[in-house]
Amino acid sequence: MNGAQDLGGMMGFGPVTPEPEELRFHAEWEKRALAITLATGAMGVWNIDTMRHTRESLPPAEYLSSSYYEIWTKALANQLLADGLVSREELRDGQAEAPARPVPRVLHAGEVARTLAAGTQYARPAEAPAAFAVGAAVRTRVFHPAHHTRLPRYARGKQGVVEAVRGVFVFPDTNAHRQGEHPQWLYTVRFTGPELWGEGADPSLSVSIDAWESYLEAA
C-alpha cells in the first residue's frame, strides 16, 4: 500500500542524527515495547508480514509523528484488537475483562534464548526454475495495490539488472493477508541513480532492492 512507510526519496525530514552505539534504549517503556512485541509475535497468531502491514496501516500523519517503538506499540494494539485477543476497554483500563482466547503458543522464559537463536526461516524449496539469471535486464512492474507489498514506489517501472538470485522466499504480498505463503524466487536488482532519480542524479550511485519474481518482467 502507498502508506507513510514508503519513504524512499521523500524530502524535508531534516538531517540524520547519529547516536553512540552504547545507547540501547531511550526510555524504560521502549524495553517493555520490544519485549511484548517479540513475545506476542511468538504466539504465532500473525506473521511478520501481517504485522508490517498493520504498522504501515497507521494513518500517515500518525505514522510520521511517532517514534518507531511507538509505531510498534500502536500497531500491536491494533493487531490484538483485530484478532480479538483484547478489547478496547481492556487496553484503556489495563485490566482483563474477558477470558483469554486460545493462542497457538505462549513463549516461556526458558525458551527465549532458543527461540531468538532459531529465528524464522523464510526460504522455501524451489518448485520451478528461476525466470531470470544473474545479469538479466529486468523492469519492475507498475502497480499500486491497496494491500501489502515490498516493492517501494521509487523503484516501480524502473529498469535494472539482476545482480543475485537469492532463492525462493515467502511472498509477503499474500502472506501479510493470511492468503498463503506462495513462495517465489527472490532477486537482488540493481538500478543506476539516473534510472531512479532522473535528471541531475548522481551517476556514481546505484541502488538495489530485493524483488520477488512477480514484481519483475524482462526488459
Binding site: 524495553k31 485477543l85 505462549v106 527465549v112
Partner: peptide, 23 residues
C-alpha cells in the same frame, strides 16, 4: 505500554519472565 503489558500478562498471552529474558 504499561496497560498493554498488564493486559497481556493477565490474560496469559505473555510471561513476565520471558519479557525480562528478551530485554
Amino acid at each position: 505500554v504499561r496497560a498493554l503489558e498488564s493486559v497481556l500478562v493477565e490474560k496469559g498471552y505473555v510471561e513476565p519472565d520471558a519479557l525480562d529474558a528478551i530485554i
